[in-house]
């Protein structure tokens, strides 16, 4: 084990995969000379050169399409979006091209590529820079979607994403890049589609993913002080979702709170709740509750932003509610 930041874990994953396979290249805005808007690609230009670490003009639609074309003829592109807010301009390529090429070509053209970058809100960045798109992306057949919440998962899931022969969306987090954690040494690859119990408990299940896993873990700490033992399930992959892991934890604790980053309507937690009611209905002792962003664009003002975001206090309150403690 080595302690490193989430940023360095991603950097190590990129470096190792680029060394392993010369078809892998990184492309995006400011990835090369500037070393990455969030320094995730630090040192890669120096090691791999400008053909494999490619700065692009500010053309999300264009360079996402360049990635699709390169993948069609045998390369393995990693397309970095400075943030997923800007990737909205590229969704045509992600959704209409990458996710469908294999299907509409009758199995001829696979898309071994990665689209990655930070997703969701950071701090006081305002309405256009604080959005969480996981439910949009996880909605699309033909994509895989991962949302690592720790440095170890960041490295292991990104490496798996690069090796996968399908288009994989990697949702990182601006607030996570500085987070430190233990990362297994060696070729650490985490299979896609497998959730992980991050904390064992028996009273209530907190189901989460990405940055929010850390909120759920802190909420579990707070609940423990009152003698409530929460189990924290980290989905890690949002598509395909590890339904057996969801069902197992809910059948064990009989209560479920989903902690998600996006808005409520059609959000990711709605899908989790659907799996739970179908597969664990008779085990439930309370309705499934969801902790999510308030149904408003993200405000800039500090107090309003805090009010809008899912957080530890809201998670604790939801857990107490499904336990009928308040």
């Amino acid at each position: 084990m080595t302690v490193m930041t989430y940023r360095d874990a991603l950097n190590a994953a990129l470096r190792e995969e680029m060394r392993r396979d010369d078809r892998v290249f990184l492309m995006g805005e400011e990835v090369a000379v500037y070393q990455g808007a969030y320094k995730v690609s630090k040192g890669l230009l120096q090691e791999f050169g400008e053909m494999r670490v490619v700065d692009t003009p500010i053309t999300e639609l264009g360079f996402a399409g360049v990635g699709v074309g390169a993948a069609m003829v045998g390369l393995r592109p990693i397309i970095e979006f400075m943030t997923w807010n800007f990737a909205l301009l590229a969704l045509d390529q992600v959704v209409n091209a990458a996710a469908k090429m294999l299907y509409m070509s009758g199995g001829q053209f696979a898309m071994p590529m990665v689209f990655r970058g930070p997703n969701g809100a950071a701090l006081q960045l305002g309405a256009q820079h604080s959005q969480a798109w996981e439910s949009w992306l996880a909605h699309i057949p033909g994509l895989k979607v991962v949302a690592p919440g720790t440095p170890a998962d960041a490295k292991g899931l990104l490496k798996a994403a690069v090796r996968d022969d399908n288009p994989v969306i990697v949702l990182e987090g601006e607030m996570l890049y500085n987070m430190k954690g233990e990362v297994p040494d060696g070729d650490h690859v985490i299979p896609l589609g497998v959730a992980e119990v991050k904390r064992v408990g028996e009273h209530v299940s907190l189901i989460s993913y990405g940055k929010m896993v850390n909120v759920a873990l802190q909420a579990a700490d707070a609940l423990a002080r009152d003698g409530v033992h929460a189990e924290v399930l980290d989905l890690r992959t949002l598509r395909p979702m590890d339904v057996p892991a969801i069902v197992a934890t809910v059948r064990k604790t009989n209560r479920c709170v989903v902690v998600e980053e996006g808005w409520e309507l059609c959000g990711l937690g709605a899908q989790v709740a659907d799996y739970v009611q179908r597969e664990a209905f008779d085990w439930l002792d309370a309705p499934v509750l969801r902790v999510h962003q308030a149904e408003a664009p993200m405000p800039y003002a500090r107090t309003l932003e805090k009010h809008a975001k899912p957080d530890v206090a809201k998670t604790v309150a939801a857990a107490r509610k499904v336990l009928y403690l308040d």
Partner: peptide, 15 residues
């Protein structure tokens, strides 16, 4: 939509 894809094919040829 396929015009950037063609550019990507060109990129791969050069790569």
């Amino acid at each position: 939509g396929h015009i950037p894809i063609a550019t990507g094919v060109g990129f791969a040829i050069k790569y």
